[in-house]
Nucleic acid binder design. Structure first.
Lengths: 211, 211
DNA sequence: TGGTATCTTGACCCAACGGTCAACATACGC
DNA sequence: GCGTATGTTGACCGTTGGGTCAAGATACCA
C-alpha cells in the first residue's frame, strides 16, 4: 500500500495508536492517575512496547498535549477570518463546538492539565496563547470602538466562549446524564451549536438574523 | 474553650482538617492521582491518622463530594429568589461567581469527577440535579412565554452560565498566567462578576440598566 | 542468503501505593 | 486515681506503578 518503507509505516502507525490511547486514558484519569499499563491495554500492545516508542510517561504526555495544541490553534485561527463581528464570532464558536464534538478527550486533557497547575502548558500559555488573546481582544475592542457591538469586556467575552464551548466536551458525561442517558445526536448538536452562537451574539448585542 | 466534650471537638476538628486537605489534593490530582500520603502531609498528620477517620480513600472522596454538593446546592437555591428574570439571573450568576472564588478546589473536584465518568456523582446528577434543571428550565420557559426575555434554549443558557462561572475556578491557573502571573484582585473579580452578569443578561436580550 | 537495524515482548526491579496493626498516649466517667 | 474508650503513630504488608533488559522476531540492504 504505502510507498514509503514499511519500517517507517509501522513506526508511525504504532505511535499514532499509542497517542490516541494515551489521550483517552489521560482524559479519564489525568497525568498522575493514568498508568502506562492502562494506555498499553487501550492500545492493544504490551507495556514495554509503549516505552519503546515513548521513553517516559511524561514524554508521552507532552506529545499528547502537543498533538492537541495543533488542533486547538487551527480552530483558533478561524477567529479573524471575517471582518464582520457576527460572522467572525459565529465561525469561531462553531469551530470550537466542532472541536468539542470531534476531540472531547483532547479538551479534557487540556482542562486537567490546567487544573493541575499547568506544569507543562505554562510556557505555551504565557507566550503563544497570551499573544493570541492580546490580538483578539484588540480586534474586539476595534469592533466596540466602531460601534459594531456592545461595549463588553473582551476578555470576559473570550472566556465565556471558551468555557461554554469546552463545556460540551469536558462535561459531556453530565450532559448525557441530564439528557436521560442519551448522547446528543448529530442534529441536536448542530442545533445546540446554533443556540450557543445565538447566545454569544446576543451577549454582545447582535441579534441573529435568522428568526 | 468549647463547652462540648473535648473528644468530639478533636474529632470534628481533625475531620474538617482532613476534608479540606483532601479537597485540595483531589482538585490537583483527581481521585486516582491523589494519594492518601499527600493528603496526610497537606493536613499535617500521619497517614495512619487519615485512615483512622476515613476508612478508605473512596470514603474520603465521597465525603469531600458531599461537602461540596451542599455548598453548590445553596448557590443553586438563589435562582428562584426573584420573579424578575434580570434580578434572578443576576443573583444566580453572582452567587456562582462567588462560589468559584471561595471554593475553587471544590469546583475542580467536581469537574474531575465528571471527566472521569461521574462514577460517584452519577446518582446525584440523574436525580437531584436533573429535577433541579427541569424546574429551572420551566421557569425560563415561563419568562419566554411572558415575553420577558428572548426566546433562547433554556438548557443552553443554563449550561453557559455554569460553564462560564465555573471557568473562573477550574481554569484559574490559565487566567492567572494570561494575566501576567497575577491573581485577579478582589475588586477586579467583583468587576468581572458584573461583566459576566452583563454578558448573560445580554444573551437573553436584557440590557443591564447601569450604562 | 547473510548481516544489521529496528521492532516486540515476558520477565524482572525497586519505589510508592492503599491499607493494617499493635503499642502507646490522652481524655473522661466513676 | 483507675479503667476504659477514643485518638495517635511508626512499622509493616501485599500490590501495583514506571521503567529496564535481554532474547527473539521481523524487515531491509547488499
Amino acid at each position: 500500500m504505502g510507498s514509503l518503507p514499511r519500517k517507517i509505516e509501522i513506526r508511525e502507525a504504532n505511535q499514532a495508536l499509542i497517542l490516541e490511547a494515551a489521550e483517552k486514558i489521560f482524559a479519564m484519569n489525568g497525568f498522575k492517575g493514568a498508568t502506562t499499563g492502562a494506555i498499553a491495554r487501550e492500545a492493544g500492545l504490551p507495556k514495554a512496547n509503549v516505552h519503546y516508542y515513548f521513553k517516559t510517561k511524561l514524554d508521552l504526555y507532552r506529545e499528547v498535549l502537543r498533538y492537541i495544541l495543533s488542533d486547538w490553534m487551527s480552530a483558533a485561527s478561524t477567529f479573524e477570518a471575517h471582518d464582520d463581528p457576527a460572522e467572525a464570532l459565529r465561525t469561531y464558536v462553531t469551530a470550537k463546538m466542532a472541536f468539542s464534538r470531534k476531540r472531547p478527550y483532547g479538551s479534557r486533557v487540556w482542562a486537567r492539565e490546567i487544573m493541575s497547575g499547568a506544569p507543562v502548558l505554562e510556557e505555551f500559555l504565557g507566550t503563544t496563547l497570551k499573544a493570541w488573546v492580546k490580538e483578539r481582544t484588540g480586534i474586539i475592542r476595534c469592533w466596540i470602538r466602531a460601534g459594531k457591538i456592545k461595549a463588553v469586556d473582551p476578555q470576559a467575552l473570550l472566556y465565556m466562549i471558551w468555557a461554554t464551548t469546552q463545556h460540551y466536551a469536558d462535561f459531556e458525561r453530565q450532559i448525557i446524564i441530564l439528557n436521560s442517558g442519551n448522547e446528543l445526536s448529530e442534529s441536536r448538536y448542530r442545533q445546540r451549536t446554533r443556540q450557543v452562537v445565538d447566545l454569544v451574539l446576543g451577549s454582545v448585542g447582535l441579534t441573529s438574523q435568522v428568526r
